[in-house]
Design a protein around this nucleic acid. Sequence first.
DNA 1: CCCTGTTGCTATACGGTGTAAAGTCGTTGA
DNA 2: TCAACGACTTTACACCGTATAGCAACAGGG
Lengths: 224, 224
Amino acid sequence: MTTQTTGSIQPRVPLSRERVLQTALELADWSGLESLSMRKLGQELGVEAMALYYHFANKEEIVDGIVDLVFSEIDVPSGGGAWKAEMRQRAISLRDALLRHRWAIGLMESRRNPGPAGLRHHDAVIGSLLAGGFTMAMAAHAYSVLDAYIYGFALTKMNLPFETTEEVADVAETMLAPFAIGAYPNLVAFLTEHAVKPGYDFGDEFEYGLDLILDGLKLAQGSA
Amino acid sequence: MTTQTTGSIQPRVPLSRERVLQTALELADWSGLESLSMRKLGQELGVEAMALYYHFANKEEIVDGIVDLVFSEIDVPSGGGAWKAEMRQRAISLRDALLRHRWAIGLMESRRNPGPAGLRHHDAVIGSLLAGGFTMAMAAHAYSVLDAYIYGFALTKMNLPFETTEEVADVAETMLAPFAIGAYPNLVAFLTEHAVKPGYDFGDEFEYGLDLILDGLKLAQGSA
DNA sequence: CCCTGTTGCTATACGGTGTAAAGTCGTTGA
DNA sequence: TCAACGACTTTACACCGTATAGCAACAGGG
């Protein structure tokens, strides 16, 4: 039990936004966003749920806070002019952050109340592209396609219900079991001839698509 | 009130999976996924919530059902060999379906129990790429990057809290208001010099990135 | 015709959620 | 010493998904 008895020796340090957010982040990492409830979070802090409302207006504000904590973990480009390398590093750093905090996928992109780390991130990305010689219009294109790809990859690949190739085979079988044999020949061929082969890793797809997009952007920039 | 009195003239037609799913889809379209509750859905059908459990094991099964309804609205490639045009049309059709059913973003990609329409969709996409001359490995790359981009675009752009350029200006101002002037110069420049200009439409970004990716895939296929 | 299942739905209940409103301490300043 | 304030607790409400049990209508067979 994390709850402390009343007669504890500890002089009972009061809550703070930082301590609440840190604990909320750990709770979400550990057991998912759906079990980040005000009551559980309070319990983890040795406090009743309603105590949190003294420090935060509502749960949304807590979620805003931990999303900004995730943003603060992402490498921010320096704006030195080497836009392609900087964008590549940012993409991988963002992907890794989303891997560490899977609950954040779907929460980071379109928040109404971005925190300082999120704003700094956006600012640095635009700065890197402009320093790399992009026009404002091209920078908008580039940022749009890159973010769509990175978050989309996280959305479509990192939540898949399997990690190993054996699990792929398992899931594929139970998914297709209710249907007639031969109903989906291409899908079956893809799964049996490719996805279940040892050495195949969905994660590897990320850098392929990333480089395809970065090369395309370089081409477009040169011809502008 | 949608509830009908006991003495109604109607002979009271029993529920069916189809009728429930159709109503659930309309309810989600109309007022969002968060207000698609068993009780509200039952009320809409003139029935108590628990009646739904006679036809569906749980809510998850209903969500699976309406997701497959959305898949059934998407144009499926014919596999005639013109992969680039077919992939372009599918992408736009998928984007449009996600626009009609915004609640579906985040639900369609990694479901454990895909329905027949979803499976048929995946099958046809792989078939189109193979018919277009892609190797299985290249088809996997292509499908991965395309889906990541399409769903990611939907995720990052279609949930933004504004539609018109005036709303952009409004939201940008309230977002940046709590912070020091000059803290985010590039972001401010982007917003004031580009995003709020009349004629700028986030929606237009979609086809730019889509064609960039399709061109990149064509290049990669040729050199394979 | 009655009786017996079965089908389709209702009633009630339980444990969970976010949060509004009011109450209760301990510390602090005058 | 007393009042005020800060930090937290208590209680309550409306909502959620769903387990369990009961009830009404209809079906088929004797």
